[in-house]
Simulated assay, not measured.
Amino acid sequence: MERRLAIKQILIAAGGLVLLPSCLKHEGKSSILLSRIDVSATQEKILAEIAEVIIPKTDTPGAKDLNLHLYVLKMLDDCYEKEEQDKFFIGLGYFKDLDQQEIKALVIAANSEKDDVPKDLYPFYNLMKQRTISGYMNSKYVMSNLVIWELVPGRYNGYFPVKTA
Rank of each mutant, 00 (worst) to 15 (best):
L98I: 15
G15T: 13
P21W: 03
K45L: 11
L68A: 05
A110R: 04
N145M: 09
L33N: 14
S35P: 02
Y80F: 14
I148E: 14
I46E: 01
K129Y: 08
V147D: 06
K114G: 07
D78P: 07
K140S: 10
I37L: 08
L68H: 00
K129M: 02
P153K: 07
P123Q: 03
V162W: 02
L151A: 12
W149P: 02
V152H: 11
E2Y: 04
V162I: 13
D38V: 09
A41Q: 12
A165F: 10
V152G: 11
A41H: 03
Y125G: 00
K45W: 06
S40E: 13
T58A: 09
V117A: 10
Y125D: 01
G93Q: 09
P118H: 04
V72F: 04
T132W: 00
L33A: 13
K74N: 11
K129G: 00
K129T: 01
L76D: 01
P153I: 12
Y80D: 03
P123S: 08
D77K: 03
L73Y: 00
I46N: 01
N111Q: 15
N138K: 11
S139D: 06
A51F: 01
E52D: 14
E102L: 14
C23A: 09
K29T: 09
R3T: 15
D78Q: 11
V107L: 02
L47P: 00
T164M: 05
Y141F: 15
A105C: 06
T132L: 02
N145A: 01
E81F: 14
Y122G: 01
D65S: 15
L68F: 00
M1T: 10
S22E: 13
R131M: 07
T132Q: 04
G154K: 03
D97P: 08
K140R: 10
S40R: 10
L106H: 01
Q101M: 12
K87F: 14
K8A: 05
C23Y: 12
M1G: 15
H69K: 00
Y80N: 01
Q130E: 14
D115P: 14
I10G: 04
M137H: 14
K114T: 09
L33P: 04
Q100C: 05
K140W: 07
K74A: 05
A6H: 02
Y141N: 08
D116F: 13
Q43S: 07
Y94L: 06
V152E: 12
A63W: 00
R3Y: 10
H69L: 01
A110K: 05
V117R: 06
V147S: 03
M1F: 11
L24D: 06
I32H: 03
N126S: 06
N126H: 12
A6V: 06
K163Y: 13
K119A: 10
Q100I: 12
N67D: 11
D99R: 02
